[in-house]
Design a protein around this nucleic acid. Sequence first.
DNA 1: CCGATTTGTAACATATGAAGTTACATGAAA
DNA 2: TTTCATGTAACTTCATATGTTACAAATCGG
Lengths: 153, 153
Amino acid sequence: MKRDSKLSGILHVLLHMLFMRRPATSEELGAMMGTNPVVVRRVMGGLREAGFVTAARGPGGGWTVACDPAATTLADIYRAVGEPSAIALGHRTEMPGCLVEQAVNARLDAAFAEMAAVFEQHLAGVTLAALSDDFNRRLAERGASLEDQTHAS
Amino acid sequence: MKRDSKLSGILHVLLHMLFMRRPATSEELGAMMGTNPVVVRRVMGGLREAGFVTAARGPGGGWTVACDPAATTLADIYRAVGEPSAIALGHRTEMPGCLVEQAVNARLDAAFAEMAAVFEQHLAGVTLAALSDDFNRRLAERGASLEDQTHAS
DNA sequence: CCGATTTGTAACATATGAAGTTACATGAAA
DNA sequence: TTTCATGTAACTTCATATGTTACAAATCGG
């Protein structure tokens, strides 16, 4: 199955934005994510609607973080990007007239629901600030500077 | 994302096979699963290699369950069908030179690993016999007979 | 007002992978 | 030796995440 990488991608650019003092354009963020500016706008649009970022048009415009990183969890971001299904398995048929299929689906659904719950709980336990701390820890371990990470790399 | 339904499908036919006294052909199983006999052979092939079913060629041949349903768990079957990834989310890049991406990936990987573990544990706690019991319970609730479930339905 | 810059969005194109299909070889039973 | 069945390779189809093009709308500096 082709994996959805919206969450991964958007977290990446959000974290970069936390270290920038000025609005970031879709073009810049696209370069960071290795993708097209339009893709960035599409995904960031969800965050904008949810109020986690703001967008400004025109020269000097771009995207700005508009939430408290210590109060925003990965679960919030996950929902804002449309909560794409985290589960790659499914049923063969959704409307089984067959009782065998019903028995199978019921068990699998229970497992799927458990997975989804565990995932969201995990995300809810990690704030953007925590991610930012992770990053700073890695920087320190490497003895690298913030500027080294501005995605010439 | 297109969901992988091999586990769902194969459990369905396995359960049917438990209630049959004779080998089931790929054609019959395909009709039950609403798919092509070749697809059935492909997936059953994994179970055969793992020893959970046997296949016989020629007239009167077909597939036969060759394991103890009370000793075979859904986790066994899941592995036998190739353990397709249960997780629909992924990283944007796998080899990040960027420390931001590393920080993000590490957190997401932890969440994914937790999901996968929970899923396999859940599957490991359900035997084919338990599924069969589920089915019989549903039959009783409905007051239906076994024959009603032979997939004309 | 004008032109440059940037977001917003629709419409279309590409790529990936699960599932479906065709074709034919192999083996077993009557 | 014919018929029924699996075994498997090769190809097609379909869904959908992502990428691309095109252009409208808004904002800023002059």
